[in-house]
């Protein structure tokens, strides 16, 4: 008596099911890795420090502060805190983190130390301070609207993702320290600026000075998450 063909097909059906399960698991793993790569930082998120309230254009807002720096290489540490743990030591980097969290519709005052050398911007438009209170930044104690577009170390440029405030935009050029190579000589420019955060959401920030490698200076640290780019989480 011959066996029914229906029974012979079972291993084939099992194979198809296992294939689907394997593909589903693969997709899930890739999605989890992608999400983790996108929204995590080697040293976590810097939550803005509340320092009271302030009146801006007649509105009373919560006042918070952030402090971070830009470094010519990611190998060192500042105040015992590694700049970019596990990162490429020869790439310039923001530090100590690239993830910041601020409350919505608050005045955010940022204090930065810019340790890196620099050069010319691809687009001089980014040499102008935009989106800050008064459209100014205080650089080494002096209020400025713009810097020399041919002497920029990095920029801190923030914009919203689709779904957040479409008009939100902050651009602060950070002047280069003297020197023609990217080695930390201890000199820095102090840059202080304030902006009013937008509505809740994730905002992306990056550097617009071509401090990377390969294509137009936008490869390497400019194209790898965590060095010259990050996210501003508005909660």
């Amino acid at each position: 008596m011959s066996e029914k063909p229906g029974r012979e097909r079972k291993p084939k059906a099992l194979g198809i099911i296992l294939t689907f399960v394997a593909v589903a698991i693969g997709v899930a793993v890739v999605a989890i890795l992608f999400h983790a790569q996108t929204y995590t930082s080697p040293v976590g998120t810097q939550v803005a420090k509340s320092v009271g309230t302030v009146t801006v254009n007649g509105q009373t807002l919560q006042h918070v502060t952030l402090a971070f720096n830009t470094y010519p290489d990611a190998s060192g540490s500042v105040d015992g805190q590694a700049i970019h743990p596990g990162g490429n030591p020869s790439w310039p980097s923001y530090g100590p983190t690239n993830q910041f969290q601020v409350p919505a519709h608050a005045l955010v005052t940022v204090t930065m130390r810019q340790y890196d050398s620099g050069g010319s911007l691809n687009n001089p438009w980014f040499a102008t301070v935009r989106g800050t209170v008064g459209s100014v930044a205080r650089i080494n104690g002096r209020l400025v609207h713009a810097v020399n577009p041919n002497n920029v170390g990095h920029t801190f440029t923030v914009r919203g993702a689709p779904g957040t405030d479409p008009g939100f935009f902050v651009n602060v050029p950070l002047p280069a320290v003297p020197g023609n190579n990217q080695s930390d000589n201890g000199q820095y420019e102090t840059v202080i600026f304030s902006f009013v955060s937008g509505s809740q959401g994730v905002y992306g920030w990056n550097c617009e000075y071509p401090c990377g490698t390969s294509v137009a200076g936008f490869g390497g640290p400019m194209s790898a998450f965590g060095y010259m780019s990050g996210f501003l989480h508005v909660v």
Binding site: R159, A161, P162, G167, G204, N206, F218, A224
Partner: peptide, 19 residues
């Protein structure tokens, strides 16, 4: 209207839009 980038251009391609 919205201006978007239609070429995958790097890390923040999805953020590259203008109003």
């Amino acid at each position: 209207f919205t201006v978007r980038c239609s070429q995958l251009c790097g890390l923040y391609h999805s953020f590259m839009y203008a109003s």
